[in-house]
Write a protein that binds this DNA or RNA. Structure first.
Length: 554
RNA sequence: UGGGGUGUCGCCAAGUGGUAAGGCAACGGGCUUUGAACCCGUCAUUCGUAGGUUCGAAUCCUACCACCCCAGCCA
């Protein structure tokens, strides 16, 4: 696989290039994407995936997909499968480099014993509460465990007994012996192994002790000869511990940990906890709800993987905290579909229109599937006495510069005829129920001899050509740019899902397109719940809208 | 008032001593049977603030300010 690096290199790619030029990479460029299989991947992970796989592709390296599965309480095979599917869908291939931290449990155990033998780790009998209270605070040093000075032999025996299941959970842990007064709390004799009588999704009941992240991750990186261990900023404080472990276990490969900032997206949170809660409340339909920025949610919404890749390319990689506007993602989606998506007309919120001077059978009209790409072919639509237009395309009291239908006004029906509105029919409550219009037979699209110049063009579906369909329109899930996770319920956008019952054109119903642009309405994808009898379309993104409702100046 | 980071246009983001790239958004205009797309143009005398060094500073020095992360037997 090869790919071009971005035109402007980020600091990580610059570092990679420099390392290559200096001949520092005896084993080549090797990266890894290390998810914990405890949830679904979201767009923030996509940034990391694109970085790790991208760097390797661009510079002839390799990437491991390594599951960081050291906490059997939280992890499951379900997530292992979902994550693999998502990474693959995004367009990345780990080939034969699928690994698990649990693949290395024996090596990890071996290194733990080596650490003990070197006097660098000890078995501690303190409870977790005691460990916490002796750790000190941000401004005061911690105090050493009374078990800190056990002999190597005692530690080794105890650790072996831990492994053999002789002790209850929580009664003993293995701790690295570093420095209880370090200003870096991670170095205050961190726990590196704990007892957990839990079944692991891969190793079953083989182990009752499990290594902690800080001990595991760096060793796995070293064993896989990772050349650049890329992670997010919150691990910066862990780097000294990462280095400490590598230096004290005696391996000959020491990957550099390099940190970058995680992705922030406006009006979104990247919190598993919150989405889990919204799903449980029934506000969201699941992890693949199209309003959620999970990979599966984006996929269901219709966002193509290429757009996500383009998005990650455009946001760059830095150490600055960032909050990217959703407009950029929207742009990347539209960019992907503009040339390729066939066009169709659909009426999302129908208003019935009677063409009073039309008699007889429907007339057939030809229209291209794409105005710029003839190779996509043509379709047939019809025009008849009864048609549907969009409710928002008619106004009794039009604002200035309104270019749609008004009373006594004219408008062209896309690919069909010009009509003039003569009469507005309302029910007793004053709601408009239908329009009576006149059409101009000589204004037929492509052979217009009417000389009429209406100011606007609107879309329509003919009554005899209309197939009922459901449209699901999505908006921001939260009302705040930076949702406060403490009182998230108050910031939920209750209008984030709007369902409309309207019509698609017959030719569209018969066709089999994965993506479509309903003209003037946006790009849509057929939802997984859609059937031929009751089609359902998800709006992936709206079209960008140059029309601004004029501000009324009174 | 410990430690680790970050501060360049509304949002991303280049630039690392030679006089502020680019993208998104926005705003004008052209074109248009999608108010789309497309095409043109505008958009930081200024780089968190204040001093200093220098012929010259976003880039070097000093002080200050703001924001983010860290006290799981989570990752």
């Amino acid at each position: 696989m090869s790919a071009m690096p971005p035109e402007v290199l980020d600091f990580i790619r610059k570092r990679v290039v420099a390392d290559v030029e200096e001949g520092k990479l005896a084993d080549g460029i090797v990266t890894r994407f290390p998810p914990e299989p405890n949830g679904f991947l979201h767009i923030g992970h996509a940034k990391s995936i694109a970085l790790n796989f991208g760097v390797a592709e661009e510079y002839g390296g390799k990437t491991f997909l390594r599951f960081d599965d050291t906490n059997p309480l939280a992890e499951s095979e379900e997530f292992v499968q979902a994550i693999q599917r998502d990474v693959r869908w995004l367009g990345y291939d780990w080939e034969d480099r699928l690994t698990f931290a649990s693949d290395y449990f024996h090596e990890l155990y071996y290194f733990a014993e080596k650490l003990i033998e070197g006097g660098h780790a000890f078995v501690c009998d303190l409870s977790s509460d005691e460990i916490r209270s002796t750790r000190g605070t941000l401004t005061t040093p911690g105090t050493s465990s009374p078990y800190r000075n056990r002999t190597e032999e005692e530690n080794l025996n105890l650790f072996r007994e831990m492994r053999a299941g002789k002790f209850q959970e929580g009664t003993k842990v293995l701790r690295a012996k570093i420095d209880m007064s370090s200003p870096n709390i991670n170095l205050r004799d961190p726990v590196i192994y704990r007892i957990l009588f839990a079944e692991h999704h891969r190793t079953g009941t083989e182990w009752c002790i499990y290594p902690m992240y800080d001990f595991t991750h760096c060793i796995c990186d070293a064993l896989e000869k990772i050349s650049h261990s890329l992670c997010t900023l919150e691990f910066e404080d862990h780097r000294p511990l990462y280095d400490w472990v590598i230096e004290h276990i005696g391996v000959n490969h020491h990957p550099p940990q390099i940190e970058f900032s995680r992705l922030g997206l406006e009006y979104n949170v990247m919190s598993k906890r919150i989405y889990t809660s919204l799903i449980e409340q029934g506000f969201l339909s699941g992890w693949d709800d199209p309003r959620v920025p999970t990979i599966s949610g984006l996929r269901r919404r219709g966002v193509p993987p290429a757009s996500i890749r383009e998005f990650t390319r455009r946001i760059g990689v830095t150490k600055q905290d960032n909050l990217v506007e959703t407009e950029l993602l929207d742009f990347c989606i539209r960019r992907e579909f503009e040339e390729s998506a066939p066009r169709s007309m659909a009426v999302l919120d129908p208003l019935k229109v009677v063409v009073t001077n039309y008699e007889g059978q429907d007339e057939r009209l030809e229209a291209p599937w794409h105005p710029k790409h003839d190779e996509l072919g043509e379709k047939t639509l019809t025009f008849g006495r009864e048609i549907y237009i969009e409710r928002t395309d008619f106004s009794e009291d039009p604002p200035r510069k309104y270019r749609r239908l008004t009373i006594n006004g004219m408008v062209r029906l896309r690919y069909a005829f010009i009509i003039r509105c003569d009469e507005v029919i309302k029910d007793i409550e004053g709601k408009i129920t239908e329009l009576h219009v006149t059409y101009f037979p000589e204004s037929r699209s492509g052979q217009d001899t009417s000389g009429l110049k209406p100011k606007g063009v609107i879309h329509f579906v003919s009554g005899n050509n209309a197939v009922p369909a459901e449209f699901r329109l999505f908006d921001k899930l939260f009302t705040t740019r930076i949702p406060d996770t403490n009182n998230i319920d108050e910031q939920i956008n209750r209008e984030s899902l709007v369902v409309k019952q309207g019509y698609i054109e017959g030719a569209m119903h018969k066709a089999d397109f994965s993506q479509i642009q309903f003209e003037r309405a946006g790009y849509f994808v057929e939802d997984q719940e859609s059937t031929s009898e009751s089609p359902v379309y998800n709006r992936t993104v709206t079209l960008s809208d140059g029309y601004k409702v004029p501000v009324s100046v009174n």
